[in-house]
Simulated scan of single mutants.
Amino acid sequence: MPIEWKLFADLAERTGDKHVTVDAAAGDTVGDALDALLAEHAELEGRVLDEEGDDLRSQINVLRNGTNVREEEGLETELEEGDELALFPPVSGG
């Protein structure tokens, strides 16, 4: 099933697109969809993952259908048909 990522701010600039679709299967997790996104767009890896490369940077937010996955099961949150994922970098106001 296709899963669409919405990318914001410099993340969209790095990929050249605000919408990226990746393939996911039933039972896949948000982490699996993130792995698929990073496999296609390695330029995001250093911006999104921590120094060890195995977890999200603390200031990066991943939303599934508008809800931060940290409020669910994090990257282990299971995907469902029609889910929409969003990746937000830190935002600063001024």
Rank of each mutant, 00 (worst) to 15 (best):
Met1Gln: 14
Ile3Gln: 09
Glu4Arg: 12
Trp5Met: 05
Lys6Met: 06
Phe8Pro: 02
Phe8Asp: 03
Ala9Ser: 14
Asp10Arg: 11
Asp10Gly: 13
Asp10Glu: 13
Leu11Ile: 12
Arg14Thr: 08
Arg14Val: 10
Asp17Leu: 13
Asp17Met: 14
Ala26Lys: 13
Ala26His: 13
Ala26Asp: 08
Gly27Trp: 03
Asp28Phe: 00
Asp28Glu: 03
Thr29Pro: 04
Val30Cys: 02
Gly31Met: 07
Gly31Thr: 02
Ala33Pro: 08
Ala33Val: 04
Asp35Gln: 11
Asp35Arg: 04
Ala36Cys: 14
Ala36Glu: 14
Leu38Tyr: 06
Leu38Val: 07
Leu38Glu: 04
Glu40Ile: 07
His41Tyr: 10
His41Leu: 07
Leu44Gly: 00
Gly46Arg: 05
Arg47Gly: 14
Arg47Asn: 15
Glu52Gln: 14
Glu52Arg: 15
Asp55Gln: 14
Asp55Pro: 08
Leu56His: 06
Leu56Tyr: 09
Leu56Ile: 11
Leu56Asn: 08
Gln59Cys: 13
Gln59Gly: 10
Ile60Met: 04
Asn61Arg: 11
Val62Thr: 04
Leu63His: 00
Arg64Glu: 07
Thr67Pro: 00
Asn68Thr: 12
Arg70Leu: 06
Arg70Ile: 03
Glu73Gly: 05
Gly74Arg: 00
Leu75Ala: 07
Glu76Ser: 09
Glu76Cys: 07
Thr77Met: 00
Glu78Cys: 02
Glu78Tyr: 01
Glu80Gln: 12
Glu80Thr: 10
Glu81Trp: 14
Asp83Pro: 06
Glu84Tyr: 15
Glu84Arg: 13
Ala86Ile: 09
Leu87Gln: 02
Leu87Glu: 01
Leu87Tyr: 01
Phe88Leu: 03
Pro89Ile: 04
Pro90Glu: 10
Val91Gln: 13
